[in-house]
Design a protein around this nucleic acid. Sequence first.
DNA 1: AAGCCTGGCGCC
DNA 2: AAAGGGCGCCAGGCTT
Length: 550
Amino acid sequence: MLIALVPEADSAGRLRKISEDGSPAGPVVETADLPAAVSSMERLHKPRWVWASTPEVYPDLLAAGVRVERCHDLTLTEGLLLAHAGRHREPRELPAAIARVLGLPPPPDAGPRKRDAQPTLFEPVPASLPGGVDPLDAVGRVFGAQQANPLFDQLRLLVAADCASWLAACEMTFHGLPWREDVHLSLLEDLLGPRTPPGVRPRKLAALADRIVAAFGGRAVNPDAPGSIVQAFAWEGIDIPSARAWVLRSLDHPAVAPLLEYKELQRLWTAHGWSWLDAWVSDGRFRPEYVVGGVVSGRWASNGGAALQIPRILRTAIRADPGHLLVAADAAQLEPRVLAALSGDQRLAEACGDDDLYAAIASDSFQGERPKAKIAMLSAMYGGTSGEAGPLLAVLRRRFPSAVGYVESAAQAGEQGRMVRSRLGRTSPTPSDAWRELTGAADDAGDSAARSRQAARNWGRFTRNFVVQASAADWTAALLAVLRTHLPPDAHLVFFQHDEVLVHCPAPAAEAACDAITSAAREATRLLFGDTQVRFPMRAVPVESYADAK
DNA sequence: AAGCCTGGCGCC
DNA sequence: AAAGGGCGCCAGGCTT
């Protein structure tokens, strides 16, 4: 069963059963209590809910205690369809989508949301849609158009997986990542010194800054300003191209040690210090806002809180509630395994039989030198060519010609301005007009030819990586879609980061959660690659603290 | 003062 | 000769 739904102010809303082609299949139901209406329909029919945008609808349902099993997110689907058709830049929101259905000019851009604007929950669909269409009608009509789109069949699995991912993302924000403020605070105090007001350097940072100045003979140096650091070294007769940590590390100078330590602690202070705690952690939970498909490759992005960049050192603050456990699971070397399955490279598939893929490649091709195998494989997937990558990649190409050939032909497509797709049909954006102009100017010599080749190669690196990264995103989306409906009832997904998940559950449920994760990984593999020989190991371990995983 | 860019670095 | 993909966020510093 399909039910179109439009939220309105104050938890009211309208819904209506629709048929597969989006046409009305029942009366409009107006309700002053949308969560209650959804809850009862969910219990009775487990419908697929059709709505404009999951993050605008689902959080308030969750807050009211209502969970749904399936949805169809029109905005998300529109984006996937547009990208597949090479129309990556067109707006995907409901007003634009209905304008396309009606053959009307696109509505004026709503413009970016003001940075500080409070996101209003149950944000109503814009009052007036193109053509004055009723929003509930628009939901049905856009749904019908998406189903009728000849591309839809190819994207069916991707749409289902990504829509389910959006549900999972909202559920993660709702449950929140367990975060022990006291642990975080004592860590900050240990590393930085007592808390200071915003903008006032904590004691240990101030001391390091003093040591840096002293090491430069008392010259004024601002360690927060890279230019200032470069200049300070220049005065000492040391020319460096930048103040990056890896550049400093190669220098022999008394300022280097305090500078490196300063950079590390300064980052902790500014990115995950006391202000961060105040802003993002409350009632023992960190609740970031995820953006499913926020990255062109289909990876998730996050809004605020740097949710996908939690430093390792802080993972000790992520602890299960009393009587609970966190189940931590990550897909081991997901991207090279995805490449093995995508390319059908028999030899690489065999190496995937090992839980440590790089070790297997090393013993096959690099005399057991694992670091070389890893550099070679990463260079193949990222387009790296620096340093020793070239020769290592050559070895890899000889041993795994199908796998390397797969990414190289993706790179070639990019260099020629063509689109590439992931396993489930995520499609890379086409390069800009400026890029085409630059690379189209083919045969002239000198600088311009060099810039042209450079631009082409840059885009080639992007598409080379896209096929792998986006297919890995396909796999994790399928994983989440399966997993969220197969966890034990009291177990909740609380974190997801590219290729790893955290589940929070009562201790006795941990074992079942581990099993659910392992079998969801198997199912994701089957959904993407059928009966491929490639193994995708996903080890799930119950831990008290995230820091204890791995 | 606000907006934008850059350098830098955290995560995968 | 140099040559690594994708992000978000911060401070500094420039422009408007």
